[in-house]
Design a protein around this nucleic acid. Structure first.
Length: 553
RNA sequence: UGCCCGAUAGUAUAAAGGUAGUACAACGGUUUUUGGUACCGUUUGUCUAGGUUCGAAUCCUGGUCGGGCAACCA
């Protein structure tokens, strides 16, 4: 493999830092807040952070950024770990920002002692007002000039629970006239009498993101702290705090987050879809969450490949959903077991094949695999289920499938000729009547007949049934976020289609929970978690490309 | 009206002053017992106006457009 992929801007920085000896070991971190499920956008960050240390050596920590007890839950901690592992990555240390609450408290005291922080008894409204606006400077709080001793005493009382939520905050003393709003005396500690998922009721004050993230990076001697673009403005504060505290100088670098067409990525909106029952849960197969994609049948390999292909840069982007689908097709084409399933059945009857005769045919499991993926037995008889769409009473031009008088290959079986067909009162085709060519058996064809088309089928006598669910994009517009009005106005009403009774070949009765199947000529499918031995339920991961359907649109 | 970030085919992403390349998409073809896969080919691009230079996607200046910044969220 001569991989000559060019470096992205972060890799360039890292190679430079490694080459100049600035760092001996690369240390990154993935820092999710445990307040929701991870999605494909997080996968981009996971692949970046873990991928970097895999490539250059060093290691990556998993750090749960749990500084806001009211939104965070252990359920999310567990799901996030599962998702990262499933994607194929292993962290060096499992850490929590809450592990550092004592250290962080001492850092705050140090800031106060240096005259760089003060306790502010202003209300939230007063603080907001004093902040100014992006175009007007802020004004100093009247509590800004409190003495170090008074601030120390007050902060101690905050910690001891002597104040109610919102009574006061600890603010860094920087510059109320800065053009960077974040430097206008940012709040670094607030009071929340809330139960924390790990520290319980030990604390009633919690550090803000800006006073926790960079400090945690520093404690862990993270060399390259990689985050998304919305934190660019925070970098000045990140650096300021590290400098004033005199601690290990981690550096922050920002890249553009992933936007994927026809879906939404914000945790708030995804949570809304879950809470309002628009989807069945975080792992609904239509969700862009890792757990949703997993249930849908996506593979870790395909998601990693996707993240590799989209690249890392600083400009805003909107990735076509088609690329994700390409990546999963690419992987599943190489790995999925081929089987036959008929989703919209009509009956095909072979008049010259004895009614009481049955045959066992042999089919390769995967033409792309080295050993053809092994072989399986497929029962055959005189009555078969075929797809309704594989027959046309009046064939279109370039039609290679069944039509009166047309010949077609039954996959792994014989060539048949359509002699006639039957209709019901409404004019629906109910049965296709054929004769078969006995010498045309697959693998030992001596008939000399050439056919243009091959169709899939399932023996009526031997067919098993299954429910099959097909999914489509969740939204009808490319970028629901940037449309007028509420994003839910653009939900795709037909994002799921359920087929109650599809006919499947008997081999599938023993389908593997983790198996990936290609229903020949239809798409890639896997078993849903709702599936049981009594009632199989398949999800369509993604359809096969369909040149015929596209050409005839 | 301030500050910060960005701008290369339809979508992404390369080219560190020297032939604008790659992938996906689109289109055409070859192969095929999946109208799948594979393979071959084609179309499409440097936001704009100046400047520096023998030479600019790249450096400089002005403009335009897009995004971000006024949570006791992260």
């Amino acid at each position: 493999m001569s991989e000559e992929r060019s470096l992205n801007f972060i890799e360039e920085i890292i190679e430079n830092d490694l080459n100049t000896g600035k760092y001996k070991t690369l240390i990154t971190r993935f820092p999710p807040e445990p307040n929701g499920y991870l999605h494909i956008g997080h996968a981009k960050a996971i692949c970046l952070n873990f991928g970097l240390t895999k490539k250059y050596g060093g290691y990556t920590n998993l750090r749960f950024d749990d500084t806001n007890p009211v939104t965070e839950k252990t359920e999310y901690v567990d799901s996030q770990q599962e998702d990262i592992k499933w994607l194929g990555f292993q962290w060096k240390n499992e850490l929590y920002t809450s592990d550092y609450f004592d250290t962080l408290y001492n850092y705050a005291v140090k800031l106060i002692e240096g005259g760089l922080a003060y306790v502010d008894h202003s209300t939230a409204d007063q603080i907001a007002e004093g902040k100014g606006t992006p175009t007007e400077p802020g004004t100093d709080s009247k509590y800004r000039s409190r003495s170090v001793a008074e601030n120390l005493e007050l902060f101690g009382r905050m910690k001891n629970g002597e104040f109610a939520d919102g009574d006061c905050t600890l603010r860094a003393k920087i510059d109320m006239t800065s053009t960077n709003m974040l430097m206008r005396d940012p709040i670094i500690y607030r009071i929340k009498h809330a139960e924390h998922h790990r520290t319980g009721d030990k604390w009633c004050i919690y550090p803000m993101y800006d006073f926790a993230h960079g400090q945690s990076d520093s404690i862990e001697t993270i060399t390259h702290s990689i985050c998304t673009l919305e934190y660019v403005a925070h970098r000045e504060l990140y650096d300021w705090l590290i400098e004033k505290l005199g601690i290990f100088p981690s550096k922050q670098y920002e890249f553009a987050r992933l936007n994927l067409s026809y879906t939404v990525m914000s945790k708030r909106k995804l949570l809304q879809l879950v809470n309002e029952g628009v989807v069945s849960g975080w792992d609904d197969p239509r969700m862009p969450t890792i757990s949703g994609l997993r249930r849908r049948g996506y593979t870790p390999e395909s998601i990693r490949e996707f993240c590799e292909r989209i690249g890392i840069a600083k400009r805003e982007n909107l990735i076509e959903l088609g690329l994700l689908e390409f990546c999963v097709r690419e992987h599943l084409n190489k790995t999925a077991t081929r089987v036959m399933a008929v989703l919209d059945p009509i009956k095909l009857v072979i008049t010259n094949y004895p009614e009481d005769r049955e045959e066992t045919l042999i089919g390769e499991n995967n033409p792309e695999a080295e050993d053809k993926g092994g072989y399986r037995e497929i029962p055959f008889c005189n009555e078969l289920w075929i797809e309704r769409e594989d027959f046309m009473e009046e064939p279109a031009k370039k039609w290679f499938r069944l039509a009166p008088g047309a010949v077609v290959r039954l996959k792994h079986a014989y060539i048949v000729r359509c002699e006639s067909f039957k209709k019901d009162n409404q004019g629906n085709i109910t049965e296709v009547v054929c004769t078969y060519i006995p010498e045309s058996k697959s693998g030992e064809d001596t008939s000399g007949v050439n056919v243009k088309g091959t169709i899939h089928w399932v023996s009526v006598k031997h067919a098993k049934t299954a429910e099959v669910r097909a999914y489509d994009r969740l939204f009808t517009v490319e970028s629901p976020d940037s449309e007028e009005g509420d994003f839910k106005d653009y939900l795709n009403a037909n994002s799921v289609e359920v087929i109650d009774t599809a006919y499947i070949e008997p081999y599938l009765a023993n389908a593997d929970k983790d198996g990936r199947y290609q229903f020949i000529r239809k798409g890639y499918y896997n078993l849903d978690k709702d599936s049981s031995p009594n009632k199989l339920v398949f999800n369509r991961t993604v359809g096969l490309k369909d040149a015929w359907a596209k050409a005839n649109k």
